[in-house]
Design a protein around this nucleic acid. Structure first.
Lengths: 358, 358
DNA sequence: AAAGCCAATGAGACCGGTCTCAATCTAAAA
DNA sequence: TTTTAGATTGAGACCGGTCTCATTGGCTTT
């Protein structure tokens, strides 16, 4: 169409073969790096390819080999530092293993996740890494496995069927921080999460569809109960999806009559907003309020006071998920594996013994 | 091979056609949504497809149509909040326009960038968004354009040839903050950047290969010179690629004899490290040292004092780059466009009038 | 020198879609 | 009722690679 757009039609093996004076099959052998060819012919074909500026068409190659050299990744939100760091781990491993990565955000929405997976399968990715929005709604994931493609789950497990999974020891971590707070005399601890139920009320951990969060809440609940603490279900606050919602929840919580003396934030985005809100309200951390956040985000180290956090091996989470997937892609066919990476309690200065409330 | 792995071979249009009792061409028409078919046949084919759980092969489709429905994105480092946020902008627009995104990190290394682009072209992406590591070494980018594929540049422009570019008004922003500092009485201002030269010494803006940074430095230099300020070339410090290097540079700078009274950090990762270092050394911000950082990262608002920053419209940068690209993909064929988005000076509390040094 | 073996090469099918073109069928127009 | 335009369908080429299989030729073996 456009005469001044150069090389609109791409040069193919057939073109190279013609120029080199060999058959298409032979040229393909040289260009594709398979089979056996004589040095003389190899040189001729290579020269012809260079002269014509031949670029292989990976699509056509995938067509016959059945491998696309691509893995699909579905995460909640690449903007979230948790996922962007995990993504870095994934891409590093993938690149080294010779795979490229297609990224799709699900926005933690199951129907978007389904669409994403459908798209990725249509593009014939060789395998998938997914951070499922809900662990109860996983038929589409089962289909992935059913289609013969390996799947690895990132940060969130499911029980419905066996699949490679990489998670952190969330339950244990939550137990640890809760125990710590209780030891400091806290008797009312709030837990804030982005997860939600239709009526925004927490009843049982079964309501929580995000595996990692559910495990944390289980740890939190059991430790509180062990210590004989209050109406612990009501201390769990859901729906902190965006900062604005978090702020509202935190305000309601901290300005209310029976305010908690400690808050556990389920991720760093929530933790940041709680920090801002408590400062805006005029509550001093840690004197008036103790704060612990999951995820050692960069900001947690530079606030005054710096924030005590549960450091998750986020990069390694992504790295390991990719590693497990690549192993499958290379033929490993054993049963589903679950890798649990250790978290680290990073003690800084945002928690102290509970204040005696009026 | 594995008898209990279901549906190892995928069902094709031919299979569906056979089951529906029509020709392959007709089934393809229904499944592909083109041409005309009778309602009766459409229903039959649709039913057959459902019964067989037909999944289209996007690869095969791309083969003939020549469009892969994919755009390639090459950024320095997805872990960097700047890029992850821009990436979010890109993916949002891409998804809405019906494209998926392949992501490759260049690590700001030109040879990695070249390999990335080669890979993406081999995968027959429909277009590319690149944040070039060096604006002087761009032959591979010219080839992209030469291959007939649209290209959009993110945050960094090049002069070598015309291409759609989205940048922020870095030069103007740098002039503004520099002027601000000078007005406050600062007579020695340091500028820290990750960009580097072989001998780590700055001579002229021409040494800086990263467009956005070069423009900032140009603004910084010209404003300083206008005010008749000192050996301004020596105030530019390069090679702050990783936090450790930044720390060393900052230490050397702040512990030296003739230390600057103000620092401009070229990105938030550098700004964070300068903040940490000055605190470690015992310099009070802003009394002993004024600090301004580019990029309104989340941590800048919660430190004590909060950090004055140049807010870049990062999400919009990505959004716009994707938008320009999609326009080309939809047939727009005008000359290369350069979009300059406005930055915003966010005044917080990390700058004050220059201290009188001993 | 005849037989045997392996490296090197070519011909052509194939992957799973799209698309052109011709054939057939239907219903409106003359 | 015959003509004709338009809708519907099928046959088969094609996209750009890979891969199987058969053929050729050179070299070793006896």
């Amino acid at each position: 169409m456009n005469p001044n757009s150069p090389q609109t039609v791409s040069v193919t093996v057939a073109d190279v073969a013609r120029k080199a004076g060999v058959s298409k099959a032979t040229a393909a052998r040289v260009l594709g790096g398979y089979g056996t060819v004589s040095d003389r012919v190899r040189d001729a074909v290579t020269a012809a390819a260079r002269a014509l500026d031949y670029r292989p068409n990976e699509l056509a190659r995938s067509m016959t080999t059945g491998r696309s050299g691509t893995i699909g990744v579905v995460v909640g939100d690449i903007e979230n530092p948790f996922f962007s760091l995990a993504m870095r781990g994934i891409t590093d491993v993938a690149r080294q293993a010779g795979f490229t990565v297609i990224l799709i955000n699900s926005g933690e929405d199951v129907s978007a996740e389904k669409a994403a997976i459908r798209t990725l399968i249509a593009k014939r990715v060789d395998g998938l890494i997914v951070s499922p929005a809900k662990e109860t709604d996983v038929e589409h994931l089962r289909e992935v496995v059913g289609s013969g493609r390996p799947l690895a789950l990132l940060d969130r497990g499911i029980n419905a069927f066996e699949v490679d999974t990489v998670i952190a020891d969330d339950r244990q971590a939550a137990e640890g921080v809760t125990r710590q707070l209780i030891a400091l005399g806290h008797r009312h601890i709030a837990y804030l999460t982005a997860c939600d139920t239709p009526d925004h009320l927490f009843r049982t951990p079964g309501d929580i569809n995000t595996g990692s969060v559910r495990r944390r809440i289980e740890g939190f609940l059991s430790t509180c109960r062990e210590a004989g603490l209050g109406p612990v279900e009501r201390w769990i606050h859901m729906g902190a999806v965006i900062p604005e919602q978090t702020r509202q929840i935190a305000e309601r919580l901290l300005e209310g009559k029976d305010r908690p003396t400690a808050i556990i934030a389920s991720d760093s985005v929530i933790g940041l907003e709680v920090f801002k809100t408590s400062r805006a309200i005029g509550l001093a951390i840690p004197d008036d309020l103790s704060l612990i956040s999951f995820h050692d985000a960069d900001w947690t180290a530079v606030t005054s006071p710096p924030v005590t956090v549960v450091r998750q091996p986020v990069y390694q989470l992504g790295e390991m998920a990719a590693r497990l997937l690549v192993e499958r892609l290379n033929g490993f066919a054993g049963p589903g594996r679950e890798v649990v990476l250790q978290t680290e309690f990073v003690e800084r200065a945002s928690i102290s013994s509970a204040p005696t409330l009026p």
